[in-house]
Design a protein around this nucleic acid. Sequence first.
DNA 1: ACAGTGACAACAT
DNA 2: TATGTTGCCACTG
Length: 117
Amino acid sequence: MVYERVYELVRLIPKGKVLTYGMISRKLEGRLSAQAVGWALRALPSKDGLYDSDNVPWHRVINASGGISTTGKATSDNADTGEVQKKLLRKEGIKLNEEGKVDLDVYLWTDFYGCDL
DNA sequence: ACAGTGACAACAT
DNA sequence: TATGTTGCCACTG
């Protein structure tokens, strides 16, 4: 399953850093569109074995503007994901600006392109 | 096999 | 600056 590549990548994000969907997409070199990266996380089970919300820091993945995309459209097992994500980010020391966005200049995981997978 | 369904991004008004 | 449009592609039933 291609989604698992995304999960593996997300698992490598250091605490206190974030990545954007587009960056992950580019890292996977066309295997997956930015949108598909989002779908992968959307499909991430809350607790179901190898890849779940316990060992995949999905909250460190945000959109190109540094914002949270979950939009409250969540499924039954992930209701208020947007708020949860903000909380988790703050817990890791990531501060959000007035618009509730992450400051990419500060928290973006720039070494990402140097890491291999 | 087929259609519906999405946590996005880049570009064009 | 703010919307609209288009390309995107794996997963599920």
